[in-house]
Design a protein around this nucleic acid. Structure first.
Lengths: 339, 339
DNA sequence: TCCTCCTACGTCAACGTTGACGTAACCAGT
DNA sequence: ACTGGTTACGTCAACGTTGACGTAGGAGGA
C-alpha cells in the first residue's frame, strides 16, 4: 500500500538532535549515552517507528552474524522432518536466531541450489539432512568453513558434526523381539539403499537374524521402495511367497503404512506381525496398534541445534557424532505370534 | 574450522585485473563487459570460490529486496501447518525466494516477537496465520506497508489479503449430511472460540441444524477444547448425556482424534457417527475410516504465496479474500445411521 | 576530416550500520 | 593549578555491493 521508506538511524538522530553513533549506542544498549539523551533517542525512535536493520548491521559488524541459520531437510511436510524443524526452531529461538527452511526432496541439484541460496544470504550455520549419494556439495560448503551439522544421516566426509539415532541397534532389537516371539521368516522392507539410515537398518536386520540364529532368506528382502505405492506392491509380493513371512520389519515410515494397508486388505493384519521404524501419528489407534521403533525427534533436533550454535560460537573441539537412542514402543502389531 | 574470510568482489576484481564494478556487471549478467573480460572475471571468481553477498547487495540496491519472505504459523510441527509451509515454499522457490519460518504457538507475544525479528531482517513479505484475539501487532506491521497475506484466518482489520477455506459452508454440508442420515442429536466439539475458523465452523453447524429443521441442543455443544485431552473429556461428557448424541461434528483435527479415542474406548465407534473438520494422515486406515472435511492445503499455500508475491511486485489492486473450497470425504464414520 | 554515438570500461558515493578513535567537559587527587 | 582518568558525546571510514555518471577509444556518417 504505502511506499513509506523505513526510518533509519539518521532519521532518529535528526529528530533527537544527536549523532547517528549515539543512536546506535542507545539502540544497542551500549554505554556512553547519558540518561536524558537515551530518553530522547528512545522517544524519537518510537515516534518514527524505527526498527534496526539487521542486514546492514551484520554487514558492518565484525562478527558478521546474521542471527539466522539454514535448515535443509528432505521434505518439510513430512512429519519426521517437520517435528525436527520445530525442535531446531525452538532451540534457535533461545539464541534469538531465526530459521531459513528448505526442502531438498532428496535431489542433489536442489540441495546444491538451496545450499547456494543459504550461503548467499550468509547464514551463520546449517542443519542439513543430506541427500543420498554424493555429498560433494555439502563437503565443499563445509570446507569453506560454514558451521554445519548433519542430522539423521552422518557425513561421508570428515570434520563435520552429526546427530543420528540408533538405527542399527534398534533395528536389531526389533528383529530379535520378533524372533523371540517365534518368528523365523521375517521380511525386510526398506527405503532407498542410497540412504545411510536404510543401510544401517538393514544391517541391524541382518544382525538380528544372526543373533537369533536365523538364516537370511534373500527372497524376503525388498529395498529401494520409494513411496507408499512401491511399498504396497512389495508387501503384496512378499505375502505371495512360500512359505509366507510371518513377520515384517518395515524400515521406514511410509513403508510401514503401505505394508499396513496391504495386510489390512488381505485381512492378515491380525496374523502377520509388523514392526516399523519411525513412529507416526495414530499408530496407536490402528487395529492392531502398530509397534514401532520411535526416534526421539525433539532430542535429535535440539542436539543438532546445540552443535551448530557451539560451532558458531567458535567451538573447535573435534567433530562429534551424537547418537540419540530410539525406543521400541510395543503396541500390539509386533507382539503377534506366528500361526 | 578455518576462519577464511569469504572472498569479495574486490578480491575477484584484483585477480581479474578489472574494477569492482565490472565484476558486479559480470556477476549480475549486465551488459557492458566484453567477452574476454567476462571470461577472466568468471575464472577469477571460480578460483577464489566467490559467492555474492545478498545482504550487501540488497542493502545497496534500489528495490531493497532480500528475496526472503517470512512465514509465521501456529506450530510448524502440526501437519496442517507444515503442509502449508511446504506449499508456500514450493511457490516461493519459483521466484528464487527463501522462507524464514517460525511458530507463534498462538501466543500474541511470541507472534509479536517473531514479527519483529522478520521485520528486522527486512523480509519482502509475510504469510501469517494470525493468533486468536487481537491482531494489533499484525495491523501495525501491515500499516507500515509490509506485504502480508493471512492464511486460514482473515484479518480483523482492513486492507489485507487473506486466504481461507469454506469453513462455514463445508461445516453446514457436513451437518446436513448427518441429518440426512437420520441424525437429530448432533453434537458439536470445537476448538478455541477466539479463532475465527472455530466460530465459522460453529456457525456452519448452526446453519446446518436450521436447514435440516433441527433444534439446537445447547447441552451438545462443547467449545474451547484445547488439545486432545480436553477433547476426550468433552466427548466423554457428551456421551453421558441423555438422550445421547447419535452423531458428532468435530471442528478440528486434534478434537477429531480425541473423540475417536473415546468412541473406540466405549466401543461406540461403529454406532455413533463422526465427521471431522480437517483431514489427517491415516484417517482412511481407522476403523471405521473417518469421514472428514478436507481442506485443499496445497492450494491454500500456493494462493497465499501468489498473493504476497503479487503485492511485493507492486500490485495495488484492492485486497482479496480468496476462498479455497474444501470437500467432504466420505469414508464411513460419517455415514453411520442412528441406532 | 570532424563530429556524434556507442561500447567497454572506470570512479565515486551511497545503502544503514558500527569499530576505531578523537575531544571537550568534568572530577579527583596532589 | 596541573595531571590523569573518566564520561559523554562526535567524526570518520568501512562492511560488500550497486546506481549514477564519467571517459577513452572505435565505428559510422556527413
Amino acid at each position: 500500500m504505502d511506499q513509506r521508506r523505513e526510518p533509519t538511524m539518521r532519521d532518529v538522530a535528526a529528530l533527537a538532535k544527536v549523532s547517528v553513533k549515539t543512536v546506535s549506542r542507545v539502540v544497542n544498549g551500549l554505554p556512553g549515552a547519558g540518561p536524558e539523551v537515551v530518553e530522547r533517542v528512545r522517544a524519537a525512535a518510537r515516534t518514527l517507528g524505527y526498527r534496526p536493520n539487521l542486514t546492514a548491521s551484520s554487514l558492518r559488524r565484525s562478527d558478521k552474524r546474521s542471527a539466522t541459520i539454514g535448515v535443509l531437510f528432505e521434505d518439510l511436510s513430512n512429519p519426521f522432518d517437520s517435528a525436527l524443524l520445530r525442535a531446531v526452531e525452538d532451540r534457535a529461538r533461545q539464541n534469538g536466531v531465526l530459521v531459513l527452511a528448505g526442502s531438498s526432496e532428496d535431489e542433489p541439484h536442489l540441495q546444491r541450489e538451496l545450499l547456494e541460496s543459504l550461503a548467499t544470504r550468509r547464514v551463520d550455520g546449517m542443519v542439513v539432512m543430506a541427500v543420498g549419494g554424493h555429498q560433494d556439495a555439502l563437503q565443499q560448503e563445509r570446507e569453506r568453513g560454514t558451521p554445519m551439522v548433519l542430522v539423521d544421516r552422518p557425513p561421508t566426509f570428515g570434520g563435520t558434526d552429526s546427530v543420528t539415532t540408533t538405527n542399527r541397534d534398534s533395528s536389531r532389537e526389533a528383529v530379535l523381539q520378533l524372533a523371540s516371539f517365534g518368528h523365523r521368516d521375517i521380511a525386510f522392507l526398506g527405503d532407498r539403499q542410497t540412504l545411510w539410515t536404510s543401510q544401517e537398518r538393514y544391517t541391524g536386520y541382518l544382525e538380528g537374524l544372526a543373533h537369533a540364529g536365523l538364516k537370511l532368506r534373500e527372497d524376503l528382502v525388498r529395498t529401494d521402495l520409494k513411496g507408499p505405492d512401491a511399498a504396497e506392491r512389495a508387501t503384496a509380493e512378499l505375502l505371495d511367497r512360500d512359505p509366507r513371512p510371518t513377520a515384517l520389519f518395515t524400515a521406514q515410515n511410509l513403508v510401514t503404512v503401505g505394508a499396513m494397508r496391504v495386510l489390512r486388505a488381505r485381512d492378515l493384519h491380525q496374523r502377520v506381525a509388523l514392526i516399523g521404524f519411525d513412529d507416526f501419528p495414530l499408530a496407536d489407534m490402528l487395529h492392531p496398534a502398530v509397534t514401532v521403533v520411535r526416534q526421539d525427534v525433539p532430542a535429535l533436533g535440539r542436539k543438532a541445534a546445540e552443535l551448530v550454535f557451539a560451532r558458531i560460537e567458535g567451538d573447535t573441539t573435534p567433530p562429534v557424532h551424537a547418537v540419540v537412542p530410539a525406543t521400541l514402543v510395543r503396541r500390539g502389531s509386533g507382539e503377534i505370534r506366528p500361526d
